[in-house]
Write a protein that binds this DNA or RNA. Sequence first.
DNA 1: GTCTATTAGTTCCCTCAAGGAACTGGCCGG
DNA 2: CCGGCCAGTTCCTTGAGGGAACTAATAGAC
Lengths: 156, 156
Amino acid sequence: MQRTRFGDLACSIARTLDVIGEPWSPLILRDIYVGINRFEQIQQELGISRKVLTERLKWLVESEVLHRHAYSERPPRYEYRLTAKGFELCDLLLVMVRWGDRWTAGEAGPPVLYRHHACGQVSHVELRCSVCGESMHAADVDVLPGPGAAPEVTRA
Amino acid sequence: MQRTRFGDLACSIARTLDVIGEPWSPLILRDIYVGINRFEQIQQELGISRKVLTERLKWLVESEVLHRHAYSERPPRYEYRLTAKGFELCDLLLVMVRWGDRWTAGEAGPPVLYRHHACGQVSHVELRCSVCGESMHAADVDVLPGPGAAPEVTRA
DNA sequence: GTCTATTAGTTCCCTCAAGGAACTGGCCGG
DNA sequence: CCGGCCAGTTCCTTGAGGGAACTAATAGAC
């Protein structure tokens, strides 16, 4: 956790960062997305400190991104699963993958490929407009104050 | 900067986080995207420590996400601008905004709206498959090892 | 010519979060 | 009853973030 909390800003980016902006959190989310659901597994896969992993998991559960599921009563054992809120957050991971593949993968090519169920092809995500369906990137939009804007301040 | 660097992992998410995963970096990117380009302006808008801002800007310039543009020779004064690489990184911000709007905006509604140039409508981004154009989310894909995968390890 | 303001950092100290390793508690199998 | 597994917790050390003061370069006011 960084010292300054972002959740109070009238900014959806800051609020999203408040949930998964801390170091390790996106990688924990990825692990759980690909089926690495248990404390011990995640700790070993990432090489993260157990203390930090405990803190992150607790926060993600509080934020309703993950839910702690008992897979054994005796002894009490838990695994972590994505909620609907958490599943949608994985969109962010797909976009990170896309950017990382394009700009950091280098000679070797992307470390992981994604096959789309609908068409069966290996592909990647693209951003489109929810209204017209055309390509929509940072350069293709105007930014306007919305209903939840803080007075006298414009934040994204 | 968190203690553990992520850039060396064979994982595009980790590599992307290596560039903008540190606290404040996405918010700095956002500021520059919306036209807040100068050190003093960013520092005041975010309330970030000047020391940390210096470190982040330096790193983002080294990572070729930003470029340091001299807008005055005497006295030497600089502003920060997005490179093509940096502009594409803003896609990530749009997806963060979308998630934040959906899950954290609450009663007040989204603080900022985005109008798409192509259709003139206020809308938001959606993820589509680059091959077939259909909706593509985390639940709609199979994950396969790619050419740049580390031996014996699968990372996203 | 000196005084102040502006901009872009740099330096300093202090606190608190991350890393790492050892430890705890519940339970099972031999 | 001993060792092993799992899911954490505790403790200590290091180093990153916060905050404020300081520097350098220059323009403009007086």
